[in-house]
Design a protein around this nucleic acid. Structure first.
Length: 463
RNA sequence: GGAGAGGUAGCGAAGCUGGCCGUAACGCGCCCGACUCGAAAUCGGGUUAGGGUUAACCCCCUACGUGGGUUCGAAUCCCACCCUCUCCGCCA
């Protein structure tokens, strides 16, 4: 599941509210939920669609807040623009009079009063527009019609499972227990150097992390058609806003104290914003980008969760996939990208399942999300290892990412997708736990052996 | 860090002694048409985005890196900031 879901709200609103009344099917047709999502026009003309989306997401926001601001804004705009038109024509008149030697003092005096009124209107308008803009930046994406309704992660249906859950003749250990004899993962020194949720990797563990990332990048670039990118690991406020991490989720991020820079919580942020404020050619689509980067998350609100081991760290590495797609093909691209993530787990022979996130569990920017969950024998359960989302035009609107249609015509917003392929630290955990033997050693998946210099096992005596 | 140059449509670029210059000169690209069997070349026309109003058109407002200021009126004058390029210094 995505880290930006609104868990804190799911227990505030636990019963269906009156405004959640059913929407007629024709209103929710593909057309209505297409490229105009969270467009000003959609909010103005079909507010009931957004209202239902907010309800399905358990969001406390109400469209009527927007509507009130929008009506006030338009009233102020109408008066202000009328006065500005008057001023423009009067100024042209002054220009003419000055050239012909006429007297313009009467007009200039009248414009003094007009300007004063424009200024007053402008100040109120600015306040209203700021409030409206804040609302727009805080409203989550509208879930796609194919997303199952639900309140929380309990309601996420399983799409399919792959592989056999392994059986052991002994009680399988968690990865941090294995590391007690295998070494490699140094939680104590990680805490000494930085604090809790930081880990030092030694020897085989450091190499395994590198091997996994290399394998993933090689498969994506050679077999799945992605272009490898090395982006900045710190980005500015505008970039964070483009993907939807700001303004709502600042507390989840690490921020530089003296600079307005943030450490990226995922490579999705720099990769998606690569084409911000740009107009692409339709022939360039779809674009696939991949990057292996560290990710930094404050994990605010995760106190007491996954405190041991590598599952939840302040710093972890991830290979990310980002795709830019034509609006008509973005859901095909989502299926394709999910396949790219699944291919990695299959290559590593790790059992997993795919779930579809329900409306109440989806991330802020997403219109539809699949989570891949890998089997962890030590925990005896499936744990998230990848999250693949179609954000449709939600991020593209924020970041202004457009493409020009092949036949010419006005630029349209592209659709953006992102997915982990995969979270490297968690994959390392899965490799350890699924490959463990009774003597505490670990058998490595065949696909990894060439990347480990021919090494097939991790043995206790290794350093 | 020092010195200088620059930021104007999809791209290049003019304007920068304030008004007749922003649906923005000029060139490229793109679209439509003419010519052609067809194409190239040539010729003619068209081609910014966002918002308000509207059934739609018309019309109106805003935008010349960003934010302020002066003025009846700012691409143009003033102030601050951001970014790019060149040279110098420093540095893995």
């Amino acid at each position: 599941m995505n880290n930006y879901h609104i868990t804190s709200l799911s227990f505030i609103i636990s019963v269906p509210l009156p405004h959640c009344a059913a929407i007629p099917p024709h209103v929710l047709g593909a057309n209505a939920l297409g490229a105009t999502m969270l467009d000003l026009k959609l909010l103005q003309r079909q507010p009931e669609i957004v209202e239902k989306a907010l309800c399905d997401r358990n969001s406390p926001m109400r469209v009527e807040e927007f509507t009130a601001l929008d009506e006030r804004r338009r009233a102020l705009l109408a008066e202000s623009e009328t006065l500005k038109a008057e001023r423009n024509s009067a100024s042209a008149e002054v220009g003419k009079l000055k050239r012909t030697g006429g007297d313009a003092s009467a007009i200039m005096e009248r414009m003094g009063a007009v300007n004063a009124r424009i200024k007053v209107l402008g100040e109120e308008l600015e306040g209203v527009q700021t409030a409206q803009n804040d609302w727009m930046l805080s409203v989550p994406n509208v879930p796609h019609t194919s997303v199952p309704l639900g309140k929380s992660e309990e309601d996420n249906p399983v799409l399919h499972t792959w592989g056999q859950v392994p059986t052991f003749s002994f009680t399988p250990k968690e990865h941090w227990e294995l590391a007690e004899t295998l070494g490699g993962l140094d939680f104590d020194r990680g805490a000494k150097l930085a604090g809790s949720r930081f880990t030092v990797y030694w020897g085989w563990a450091a190499r395994l992390e590198r091997a996994l990332a290399s394998l993933f990048l090689d498969i994506h670039t050679r077999e799945h058609g992605y272009t490898e990118v090395q982006p900045p690991l710190m980005v500015n406020r505008k970039t964070m806003t483009g993907t939807g991490n700001l303004p709502k989720f600042e507390e989840d991020l690490f921020k530089m104290e003296a600079w307005d820079y943030f450490l990226i919580p995922t490579a999705e942020v720099p990769l998606t914003n690569l084409f911000a404020e740009e107009i692409l050619e339709e022939s360039m689509l779809p674009i696939g980008l991949t990057a292996h980067t560290p990710c930094f998350r404050s994990e605010a609100g995760a106190y007491g969760k996954d405190t041991r081991g590598l599952i939840r760290q302040h710093q972890f590495s991830k290979v990310e996939m980002v795709r830019f797609a034509h609006p008509e093909r973005s859901f095909d691209e989502l299926e394709r990208m999910r396949g790219h993530a699944e291919a990695l787990l299959q290559r590593l022979e790790l059992p997993y399942r795919v779930i579809t996130l329900c409306t109440g569990d989806m991330g802020f920017a997403s219109a539809k999300t699949y989570d891949l969950e890998v089997w962890l024998p030590g925990q005896n359960k499936y744990r998230e290892i990848s999250s693949c989302s179609n954000c449709m035009d939600f991020q593209a609107r924020r970041a202004n990412i457009r493409f020009r249609p092949a036949g010419g015509g006005k630029p349209e917003f592209a659709h953006t997708l992102n997915g982990s392929g995969l979270a490297v630290g968690r994959t390392l955990v899965a490799v350890m736990e699924n490959g463990q033997q009774e003597d505490g050693s670990v058998v490595l998946p065949k696909a990894l052996v060439p990347y480990m210099g021919g090494q097939e096992f991790i043995l206790p005596q290794q350093r």
